[in-house]
Design a protein around this nucleic acid. Structure first.
Lengths: 334, 334
DNA sequence: GTCGAAATTGGTAGCGCTGCCAAAAAAAAT
DNA sequence: ATTTTTTTTGGCAGCGCTACCAATTTCGAC
């Protein structure tokens, strides 16, 4: 299976200096466009760089100077569109500011998160971005000791290490409940995915139940599907829930994927949406806007979260928690 | 806006060595679990590491030794689920093999791709992964000169620089056309997104048209939506196409996102699917399996592509092109 | 033309780690 | 107890770059 591959290109800054007939420092200054150098020196350096096909070595550069301009993302998942969205927002800003994104996936496991944070810190990133506030003691300790910026995204209900950008999941849950109650729904159920792992979904659910309980129309039943959220498990979850409580009049789903599953279940079974059963989701996915009846949901600023998180990092902003809020989309399913 | 933040943790290997009362080399060997050292030395080192909260510096390590164990992904987009899927597959394998993923997003722009590849190579990655075979001359030149492994994913129709893992988009287009023809559809249209940028979608379309033309039932019309693929533009595209050709009996979409938009359009307008109009997609998204009528589409091994690509890299396999194939999902919409 | 200020330049000491090598210690063989 | 073999150990030279500083050149003003 093994195979001998040629070594890395060996053109170094010293060779460029030699070829250009200038000193190493001059090459370094020209390439970083920093400090002073003559027009002539610049031309000779650039010519040599071009001719030799020199590619600077940022490993060496970082070691010699200060910042790595590396931003480490330690995210729970890539299947849940939320995280690619945050990455997308952040990556645009980072690229514009000559930073690099590195990432690892924890699969919602705090122990893995700890290991991955350690691995990331070995690259001496400028900042580490994590989802939410729930981390192991070890993770927190490492982050605090690392001296690099820490951004906890997609939540604001908790104690931030340094920076935090997101919105209140608990408030989103409450707003969803209030909306359903206002619309007159009373026999309400919940279909969700694994809450222990996805603590933000857990917070939404907590806020939701709390509001229902306070209103005098407590949650009737819930169906928790093990594993990650998916359209299929949303469908299945609703089917199971309805088997137990056929007379539910509204169901809150842990997110839009699950809700779409529920929506399709209703379509398939001829369950009239809103007349017989209301459906409410979370996230505000694009697809939910194009279904024959637009999905009632809460739209979250995921891309903006990534963007702002990245901006705070590149501008070296002071520690703060930014609540970007969310928007309730009335839609037509509740 | 600026803010003074404490410097990086300054614990170095030398300090650990000092604290443990051993030489630097011994610390290095213990931490990498390589070479020989006594049980006692190991204990003292680990104790000191723990006590000082030492985090190895891979920047320095990489500079001193050989591989960075960094794998660079230069992908067109994070909105198109295809790429997060590939990343997901690869990231699992890479983490298992102590490699790190770095990425940048080109937004389907070859010029940006070139700039980003240059930026990536500055990190001296073990491998660079790109989408498809269409790159600028400059990109190819740099990649070849870099000496690092190159993996071109999600396509096999073209000349690979080194490794390639994917499937034939052209063949997928042909298979889709054959399927529709076999089902008896004759008045066929196409709704797609920007083909110049997404060359793989372009290849599918080319294969599709080719087969139709050869069959004597050439493509009747097409609607190209500018911008990225989305459910909304699929819906809109179909609406426009039907305004011109009301009597189409089947529509091929550039992917499942677009196709779902078309599907929803039919649902909304009461267009009977298959009886009046057939819909065919591409990708095999999960959501297409749960709609009341499962989407007819081609399922592609995206996660497996990422996995295999990563495996070939970590095992340093010889240059090769691996065609992972695809699966036609009959579904119920065509 | 001379002089001081400003612009430009190159040498060199690290950055923190690993690889190499020779020295020291421990174990095995005599 | 001595020699040989094996295991363990530490010193130190880089890896390729940037930061710092001192040296040199250029420039404008007098």
């Amino acid at each position: 299976m093994d195979f001998d591959f040629k070594q890395q290109s060996a053109v170094t800054l010293a060779e460029v200096a030699e070829a250009a007939g200038v000193g190493e420092s001059t090459v370094s200054r020209v390439l970083r466009n920093e400090g002073s150098f003559s027009r002539k020196a610049r031309e000779r350096v650039l010519e040599a760089v071009e001719r030799l096909g020199y590619v600077p070595n940022r490993i060496a550069g970082t070691l010699a100077s200060a910042g790595s301009r590396l931003v480490a993302f330690v995210i729970p998942s890539l299947s849940n569109i939320v995280f690619p969205d945050v990455l997308r927002g952040a990556s645009g800003v980072l690229e514009k500011n000559k930073h690099q994104a590195v990432f690892s996936v924890t699969d919602y496991d705090p122990q893995r998160e700890e290991a991955l944070v350690a691995a990331m810190l070995a690259w001496r990133p400028t900042a580490v971005m994590l989802a939410g506030f729930e981390h192991t003691e070890g993770t927190l300790k490492m982050l605090r000791a690392s001296g690099c910026r820490v951004v906890e995204v997609l939540d604001v209900d908790g104690a931030a290490v340094d920076l935090a950008v997101g919105f209140s999941n608990r408030a989103a849950g409450r707003a969803s409940a209030e909306f359903l109650l206002k619309r007159g729904y009373r026999r309400i159920g919940y279909v969700g995915h694994d809450l222990d792992r996805d603590t933000r979904a857990g917070k939404r659910f907590a806020g939701f139940r709390e509001t229902l309980a306070a209103s005098g129309y407590p949650l009737l039943d819930r169906e928790i599907c093990s594993g990650a959220s998916s359209v299929e498990s949303g469908r299945l979850g609703l089917e199971r829930l309805l088997a137990r409580y056929a007379d539910l009049d509204a169901v809150y789903f842990s997110n839009d994927d699950m809700a779409l599953g529920g929506y399709f279940h209703c379509l398939s079974r001829g369950i009239s949406i809103t007349a017989q059963l209301a459906i409410f989701g979370y996230n505000g996915l694009d697809i939910g806007r194009v279904t024959p009846q637009p999905l009632s949901t809460i739209r979250t600023p995921r891309v903006a979260t990534g963007q702002l998180a990245a901006e705070l990092v590149v501008t070296n902003a002071p520690p703060q928690v930014v609540d970007l809020g969310f928007e309730l989309v009335e839609g037509a399913t509740a």
